[in-house]
Simulated assay, not measured.
Amino acid sequence: MDRLKTLSAFSALSQETRLEVFRLLIVAGAEGMLSGEMSKRLDVRPNTMSANLTVLLNAGLVRNERSGRTIRYFADFDAVRGLLAFLMEDCCGGRPEVCQPLIEEIACAS
């Protein structure tokens, strides 16, 4: 991920509802969620949800798939990895032991 895409991602996530939507989609994982489900869960009007999803889509943080009349949304984990890689690119000045606690904290525990 480059600097401009990173700035776009942070801009999209700098609004409370969009951050909540993104975190909800991260938890949903490969199953994703329908817009209506997210609206109900977060108590957000459908048109507001649609606008927020558009911002996240344009920032490249989420993707969607249409199935008939419904649209399912997913966190774009490749984009998340790219964002984290950009942020951690020169981490720790060549001292991996400094970054290890952070890596362990964000890694999915089995």
Rank of each mutant, 00 (worst) to 15 (best):
N52R: 04
N52K: 08
T17I: 10
C92F: 00
Q100H: 09
K40E: 15
A28C: 05
G32L: 08
M88Q: 10
V55H: 05
P96I: 00
C99D: 05
A79G: 12
G93H: 10
L61Y: 02
M38K: 01
S39D: 09
I103R: 01
R45M: 10
F10H: 04
S14L: 10
F22H: 13
E89F: 12
L42Q: 00
L25I: 07
K5D: 06
F77G: 15
D78H: 11
C99I: 01
V55F: 12
L13Y: 03
V44L: 03
N58E: 14
Q15T: 12
G29I: 11
R63H: 01
C99K: 02
L57V: 04
G29R: 13
T48C: 10
R18K: 13
L24C: 07
E20M: 13
S11L: 11
N58C: 11
E16F: 01
A107G: 07
T48P: 06
N58K: 09
D76T: 03
L53P: 05
N64G: 00
G94P: 07
S35E: 13
C99F: 03
L83K: 05
E65I: 02
I106N: 15
F74I: 03
R45G: 13
R72Y: 01
L7S: 03
S50E: 08
R45V: 06
S35Q: 10
V62Q: 02
A79S: 10
E105L: 11
L57F: 02
L19G: 02
V44W: 13
Q100F: 05
G93T: 07
K5W: 04
A107W: 04
A109Y: 02
L4G: 07
S67R: 08
L24G: 11
E89L: 11
R23L: 15
G94V: 00
E20P: 06
L19N: 06
L24E: 09
L102W: 13
L13H: 09
V27P: 04
S8R: 08
V80Y: 10
N52I: 01
N47K: 00
I106H: 12
C91A: 09
R69N: 15
S50C: 12
A30L: 04
E65W: 02
V98T: 09
D43G: 04
D43I: 05
M1A: 12
R81C: 07
Y73V: 00
L84V: 14
M33A: 13
Y73I: 01
G94E: 02
L87E: 06
E16K: 07
L7V: 12
R69Y: 14
E20K: 15
A109V: 09
R69V: 12
N64Q: 08
T17H: 12
I106P: 10
G29V: 14
R72M: 03
L7G: 03
S14T: 03
E104M: 08
S14K: 08
L25S: 03
S39W: 03
G68H: 07
R66I: 12
V62D: 03
V98H: 06
P96Y: 00
Y73F: 10
G60L: 15
R63E: 01
A109C: 05
G60Q: 09
S14Q: 04
V80R: 15
L102F: 14
V55C: 04
